[in-house]
Lab assay of single mutants.
Amino acid sequence: PDDEWKERLREAEEKNNWKLFEELARKAGVSEEKIEEWKRRWS
Rank of each mutant, 00 (worst) to 15 (best):
P1E: 13
P1L: 14
P1Q: 12
P1D: 14
P1N: 12
D2S: 12
D2K: 08
D2I: 10
D2Q: 09
D2W: 14
D2V: 09
D3A: 11
D3H: 08
D3M: 08
E4N: 09
E4T: 08
E4A: 08
E4Q: 08
E4F: 14
E4S: 10
W5S: 02
W5H: 02
W5K: 01
W5I: 05
W5L: 11
W5A: 02
W5Q: 02
K6Q: 14
K6I: 15
K6T: 14
K6L: 15
E7T: 05
E7A: 08
E7W: 06
E7G: 04
E7Y: 03
E7I: 08
R8G: 09
R8I: 15
R8D: 08
R8V: 15
R8Q: 13
R8K: 14
R8H: 13
R8L: 15
R8N: 09
L9F: 13
L9G: 03
L9S: 02
L9Y: 09
L9E: 03
L9A: 09
L9M: 11
R10W: 11
R10D: 08
R10L: 13
R10V: 08
R10N: 09
R10A: 09
E11F: 03
E11T: 03
E11N: 03
E11D: 11
E11H: 03
A12G: 02
A12Q: 03
A12V: 04
E13T: 13
E13L: 15
E14I: 13
E14P: 02
E14S: 11
K15G: 11
K15P: 02
K15T: 14
K15S: 14
K15M: 14
K15Q: 14
N16P: 02
N16T: 05
N16V: 04
N16R: 14
N17E: 07
N17A: 05
N17T: 05
N17K: 05
W18S: 01
W18L: 03
W18E: 01
W18F: 05
W18T: 01
K19W: 10
K19T: 13
K19S: 12
K19H: 12
L20M: 08
L20S: 06
L20H: 09
L20N: 07
L20G: 09
F21K: 00
F21P: 00
F21D: 00
F21T: 01
E22P: 00
E22D: 05
E22N: 02
E22R: 02
E22F: 10
E23P: 00
E23G: 03
E23R: 03
E23Q: 08
E23V: 05
E23M: 08
L24F: 11
L24H: 05
A25V: 07
A25E: 00
A25P: 00
R26P: 00
R26C: 10
R26W: 02
R26I: 08
R26T: 03
K27P: 00
K27H: 11
K27M: 11
A28F: 11
A28Q: 05
A28E: 05
G29Q: 02
G29H: 02
G29T: 00
G29E: 01
V30R: 00
V30L: 14
V30F: 15
S31P: 12
S31H: 04
S31E: 06
S31I: 02
S31Q: 05
S31T: 09
S31G: 05
S31V: 03
E32V: 05
E32C: 10
E32H: 05
E32M: 06
E32F: 04
E32Y: 04
E33F: 05
E33T: 07
E33S: 09
K34F: 12
K34T: 14
K34E: 13
K34I: 13
K34D: 12
I35Y: 02
I35E: 00
I35R: 00
I35C: 00
E36A: 13
E36I: 07
E36P: 00
E36D: 10
E36V: 06
E36Y: 06
E37Q: 05
E37A: 06
E37D: 07
W38M: 10
W38V: 06
K39R: 13
K39M: 07
K39F: 07
K39E: 04
K39D: 01
K39H: 09
K39I: 09
K39L: 10
R40F: 07
R40S: 13
R40H: 11
R40G: 12
R40T: 11
R40L: 13
R41Y: 13
R41G: 13
R41S: 14
R41E: 15
R41A: 14
W42Q: 03
W42V: 04
W42F: 14
S43K: 12
S43Q: 15
S43W: 15
